[in-house]
Computed example of a mutant assay.
Amino acid sequence: MDDVNQGDFFLTINTYHDAKRQVEAVKQLAQQNVDGIVVMTGQITNEMTTVLQQVSVPVVVQGQPSRHFETVNVDNQHAGELLVPLIANVKPTDVLLLGVDPTSDYNVGQTRFNAIIQALDNNMQRLYTTFDRTETAEIMRNYLETHSSPKYIIAATDTIALGALAALQEQHIAVPANTKIVAFDNTPAAEIVTPGLSTVSFDYFALGQWLYHRLKDLSQAEPVLTDPLLRGELVRRSSW
């Protein structure tokens, strides 16, 4: 957003994935007479929708689809479709979907997995965790105490995948020889970790540019409800 900034001043409020904090943040921004609001969130609750509809400035939502507001998102459905060829010849019971509860983030927790679930007839294992790498590692450790290591792990984010990788390596489970891992986002850590993490890459720099342009467009014209989706590409590394 800074790269395409046309002289605006950005005020950032971190709400730590807390829906109530997000609502309060929007209220605070509205009171400060900002020119527009970008909401980057895992969920648009009914309360959030009501508060945003009362705001008199342009609003753009990133992270979730919306019937009420302009949105700019990565194409999570297409990202999942990119992974389907990787599982074409595997047994569904050998696959572990490792992600967050869809009620906390539907796009990351469900949409990214939709194509995979459809391809494997929903017969794979599923384990919920958080966006925190350390917590994911602990959840994976507990899982391995009562389950054999899955042959394939599809993680909702790179950070989640790295937590799982740490737990597997502690148990001397070789990746990719015994367990293959693939994820989404292509964060810098995905390239430098050993083994390198296969992941779907999104151009988040371009996404930020889109967000700013969309917000500026809304301040100059009548809004047209559309949902531009930024597609990703699969980056193959040695974890799969």
Rank of each mutant, 00 (worst) to 15 (best):
His68Trp: 13
Gly80Ala: 09
His68Phe: 15
Leu82Asn: 04
Glu70Cys: 12
Val72Ile: 14
Val61Arg: 04
His68Ile: 05
Gln77Val: 10
Ala88Val: 01
Ala79Asp: 05
Pro65Thr: 12
Asn89Pro: 01
Val74Leu: 08
His78Pro: 00
Val74Asn: 13
Leu83Pro: 01
Leu83Gly: 05
Ser66Asn: 07
His78Asn: 07
Leu82Gly: 04
Val60Gly: 05
Val60Leu: 10
Pro85Cys: 02
Pro85His: 06
Val84Lys: 05
His78Trp: 12
Ile87Lys: 05
Val90Tyr: 08
Arg67Tyr: 13
Glu81Val: 01
Val61Ser: 08
Val72Asp: 10
Asp75Asn: 15
Leu82Glu: 04
Val90Phe: 06
Val61Leu: 13
Val60Met: 07
Asn89His: 14
Val90Ile: 06
Gly80Cys: 08
His68Glu: 15
Val74Thr: 13
His68Ser: 12
Asn89Gln: 12
Val72Pro: 07
Gly63Ile: 04
Gln62Val: 15
Asn76Lys: 11
Val74His: 10
Thr71Phe: 12
Ile87Asn: 02
His68Tyr: 15
Ser66Phe: 13
Val61Phe: 14
Leu83Arg: 02
Glu81Asp: 08
Arg67Pro: 12
Glu70Ser: 15
Lys91Ala: 03
Pro65Met: 07
Arg67Ser: 14
Glu70Asp: 12
Lys91His: 08
Pro85Leu: 02
Val90Pro: 01
Ile87Thr: 03
Val84Gly: 08
Gln64Gly: 06
Gln77Lys: 13
Leu86Pro: 00
Asn76Ala: 15
Gln62Asn: 15
Asn76Asp: 15
Val84Glu: 06
Val74Pro: 03
Ala88Thr: 05
Gln64Leu: 05
Gly63Met: 07
Val72Cys: 14
Pro65Ser: 11
Gly80Val: 03
Glu81Gly: 02
His78Val: 00
Asn73His: 12
Gln62Leu: 11
Pro85Ile: 03
Glu70Gln: 14
Lys91Ile: 01
His78Glu: 12
Val60Lys: 04
Gly63Leu: 06
Phe69Val: 00
Pro65Ala: 10
His68Met: 09
Ile87Ala: 03
Val61Asn: 07
Thr71Lys: 05
Lys91Val: 01
Phe69Lys: 00
His68Asn: 11
Val90Asn: 01
Asn76Ile: 03
Leu82Lys: 02
Val90Arg: 11
Arg67Phe: 13
Gly80Ser: 10
